[in-house]
Simulated assay, not measured.
Amino acid sequence: MGTAFLDDRGIVEVEGPDARALLHRLVTSDVTRLASGEIRYAALLSPQGKIAADFLIVEASPPGGPDRFLLDVPAAQAADLAKKLTLYRLRADVRIADRSAELGVTAHWPDGPGARDPRHPDLGTRAIGPRSDGDSARRHTYEAHRIALGVPDGGRDYAFGDAFPHDANLDRLGGVDFGKGCYVGQEVVSRVHHRGTARKRVVPVAFDGRAPAPGAEITVNDVAIGTMGTSADGRGLATVRVDRAAEAAGQGAPAVADGVALTLSLS
């Protein structure tokens, strides 16, 4: 079994009688049906439908106590997410705090303590605990596991404030509930989904030897089709223009990033 402390993850706490209702009206997933101890993948969008932050919501309400949710979010986004949620709070009876200095996230695969990561059945489980208990020595192994399963990491495989949920595969990873009511940015997401007009996607890539640098431009016959994200052990993730990548694949033209030949998986 693999275990790794994810030292680049932070925790935002949302607690209070109105916590569930507040999150449900703001984020892309259905929070009303989130059971105790369960994890759900979600994002907070801009009014234009772009991802401001993505996170895993953990239902952590104490027995008989008020609703309490822990948002497992990239640490670099935690303070900003807490601020944005506070702005949306209005008169709701909710307390919002960045708890990243105290709490952290440990991943276990194929199984272990905590709750199952909903983004992929083979990704494993995640547990939130005191940050001082964390050991990140096996972080590279977890990264290789995540990348091999094709699960992107927000802020590294796509840019916050620039990507739509479909660009980052939230629709395929359980991060968007198309049956729930309104939330911030919902109209844009619904339009893209029902029209099938997603122009970009994060896709798996494979390569031999040196890994291309994150952010490196991917070209086919000197035409840009996307950018590289994270890589590990001969595999990586990249954001590509779906139409250009498909056209290049149909012509048998090679894709290159940072001088490294890539094999793209578009299925």
Rank of each mutant, 00 (worst) to 15 (best):
A224H: 03
A224M: 03
A224R: 12
A224Q: 08
I225K: 05
G226A: 10
G226V: 02
T227S: 15
T227G: 13
M228K: 13
M228N: 12
G229V: 04
G229W: 04
G229D: 00
T230G: 12
T230E: 14
S231Q: 13
A232F: 11
D233Q: 14
D233T: 11
G234F: 15
R235K: 14
G236R: 02
G236H: 03
L237Q: 07
L237V: 01
L237R: 02
L237M: 11
A238R: 09
A238V: 08
T239I: 12
T239V: 09
V240P: 08
V240F: 03
R241K: 08
R241N: 11
V242H: 12
V242L: 15
A245C: 10
A245W: 07
A245D: 11
A246E: 14
A246R: 15
E247G: 05
E247C: 01
A248F: 02
A248S: 11
A248D: 10
A249G: 04
G250Y: 12
G250A: 13
Q251A: 13
Q251R: 15
G252L: 03
A253M: 00
P254R: 02
P254N: 01
P254E: 01
P254V: 01
A255L: 11
A255G: 05
A255W: 05
V256P: 06
A257H: 04
G259I: 04
G259R: 07
V260W: 08
A261K: 13
A261F: 05
A261E: 14
A261H: 13
L262G: 06
L262C: 02
L262S: 06
L262V: 03
T263F: 03
T263L: 08
T263G: 10
T263R: 15
